[in-house]
């Protein structure tokens, strides 16, 4: 059974049809790339899965469960974590605290317990150690206690990745993780994503314009244009697809 099953999802913003009957599915443990020209609806799809946008039609099942019946704050607990195309870090917290926020859904401790401080101490330490471990893993240990604001862009992107991993998700959704990175950083990121997939037994949904990275690390590629799916297959299959070539040439002109 597929981990994520998307069926006929439609999203409208006034007159704009951002998603139009989008259907595809992702198998557990694969790296699936979702590509398409600017404005194709990729980020919109992420926001539908995050329950930030309400689709007008369609269904999404995650591990067999009806995802659209859940509120936004329950999605992380279900096992879906993501990064944001334009970064959504919390500047008022340190890098470490930003990563700890990622663990919110799988940790406990409410207002009263937290205020009294006693019962949550050890849980807090576990969360902290785990976040430190992830930061170390991604080469961010040195900035752990710095405020999350004002660090280099590539660093901020990796912090977002660490935060998503802190949720220990089954499905990791990355929205253009390579944008703004240098050549060397992009190559390293590709290898990192593959390593994390194995290490954390993840399924990855990758939105990326960097074709070199997409073609080298993904096993499955879904191509979108104007909110619709125009191709779906292995990297080799979609690269030769005339509709895909037309879409990309059209976008480039």
């Amino acid at each position: 059974m597929a981990l994520l099953e998307v069926e006929g999802i439609g999203v409208r913003f006034g007159g704009v049809v951002a998603l139009d009957g989008l259907s595809f599915s992702i198998e557990e443990h694969e790296i699936c790339a979702l590509i398409g020209p600017n404005g194709a609806g990729k980020t919109t799809f992420f926001n539908v899965v995050s329950r930030l946008y309400e689709p007008t039609e369609g269904s999404i099942r995650f591990a067999g469960q009806d995802l659209l019946s859940l509120p936004a704050h329950a999605i992380a607990g279900l096992g879906v974590a993501r990064t944001f195309q334009n970064l959504a870090l919390v500047p008022g917290l340190t890098v470490l605290e930003n990563v700890m926020i990622g663990a919110h859904a799988r940790t406990s401790g409410g207002f009263w317990g937290s205020a009294l401080g006693l019962p949550v101490r050890s849980a807090e330490r576990r969360t902290r150690d785990d976040a430190m471990g992830l930061l170390g893993d991604l080469g961010l240990a040195a900035v752990a206690n710095r405020p999350a604001a004002g660090l280099p862009y590539g660093t901020l992107k990796r912090i977002e990745l660490a935060r998503a991993l802190a949720a220990r998700p089954r499905l990791l959704m990355l929205d253009e993780p390579a944008s703004g990175l240098t050549h060397a950083e992009v190559a390293e990121l590709g290898a990192t994503i593959q390593r994390l997939r194995d290490e954390f037994e993840l399924t990855v949904l990758l939105v990326e314009h960097h074709m070199g990275m997409v073609m080298s690390i993904s096993e499955h590629v879904v191509v979108m244009e104007f909110g619709q799916k125009i191709a779906d297959g292995t990297p080799g299959e979609v690269a030769d697809d005339p509709a895909v070539i037309a879409a990309y040439l059209g976008a480039a002109s």
Binding site: L52, H73, I75, G77, F84, V90, I101, H104, R106, A167
Partner: peptide, 9 residues
Amino acid sequence: TAAEVAGVR
């Protein structure tokens, strides 16, 4: 948004 996506009510 970041808070909600992380699971904060």
